[in-house]
């Protein structure tokens, strides 16, 4: 069984995001870029399934400009067998990304597609669900545990009410939550090995996916800030302050 893994490059989660003063975007020049943390978890899960003998091949997929290759090499160094680079200089919204994945699915026929539940740049949380709909297959979102047996995935999902368990017949789409696993670190020899692993480059335009963006971002703003309050000296002063506001 092949597993397709979405591997998006985003602004590193440690970077403090700054909105440009003219509201045209956020500052990305010179900031550190890394794999979307949820995608690292997706790749780790795929690698563990391969190590268990459930999967035979793990393919990382990236959609982006020419320099995305270096990022995909990280995925290969982590352990993916090969990479697919869908080449485009345009930014891609979730519905378009889902349509691209569907095209790759038609070609690769994977048994499982694992994506991060959301990317930490646009925080959309859509691509996996949209892909499952277009593919007409099951979705198991926000996964914190995955077991594959007899052609089905038993997935524990982190939902607001607790932990929900569902069964999904394969092929299926799984999206990862934080507690699914802890991704491995890349070791130096693996970086060397990754250099000889194949990256297929596919021109976005050759896939026949309509690239029009349905959503137009017209303005970026910094969030409203909460101002620092006051320090109280003891329990009595705190209770008095909260009682005065009618909160206790």
């Amino acid at each position: 069984m092949k597993i397709l893994v979405g591997y998006k490059r985003v602004v590193d989660y440690n970077v403090r995001i700054q909105v440009k003063p003219d509201g045209s975007g956020v500052v990305t020049d010179g900031v550190k870029l890394s794999a979307n943390p949820f995608d690292d978890i997706a790749l780790e899960e795929a690698l563990r399934l391969r190590e268990k003998g459930v999967a035979t091949e793990v393919i990382v997929v990236g959609i982006g400009p020419a320099d995305l290759t270096a990022h995909l090499r990280n995925g290969l160094a982590m352990g993916a067998n090969r990479a697919i680079h869908v080449l485009t200089s345009e930014s891609v919204q979730p519905l378009t990304a889902a349509r691209v994945f569907l095209k790759l699915i038609e070609k690769e026929q994977p048994g499982l597609v694992i994506l991060g539940k959301q990317a930490i740049d646009d925080d959309a949380n859509q691509t996996g669900q949209m892909l499952a709909a277009l593919w007409d297959r099951p979705q198991a979102t926000f996964a914190s545990k995955v077991e594959i047996t007899d052609g089905k995935a038993t997935v524990t999902r982190e939902v607001d009410a607790g932990l929900e368990v569902i069964e999904a017949e394969l092929p299926a789409v799984i999206t990862t939550d934080l507690r699914l696993n802890e991704p491995r670190f890349i070791k130096l020899p693996d970086i060397m090995k990754a250099k000889s692993k194949p990256i297929d480059t596919i021109e976005f335009d050759s896939l026949g996916v309509a690239a029009h963006d349905h959503l137009k971002i017209t303005h970026y703003a910094a969030p409203a800030k909460r101002s620092k309050g006051v320090m109280v000296k003891d329990a009595a002063e705190l209770v008095a302050a909260l009682k005065q506001k009618g909160l206790l």
Binding site: N125, Q129, A133, L134, Q139
Partner: peptide, 18 residues
């Protein structure tokens, strides 16, 4: 988590962004 799970699936069936 209910809405985040179901809404994109609806949007994709309608062929629209969310």
């Amino acid at each position: 988590t209910f809405g985040k799970d179901v809404a994109p699936r609806v949007a994709a069936l309608l062929g629209v962004a969310q």
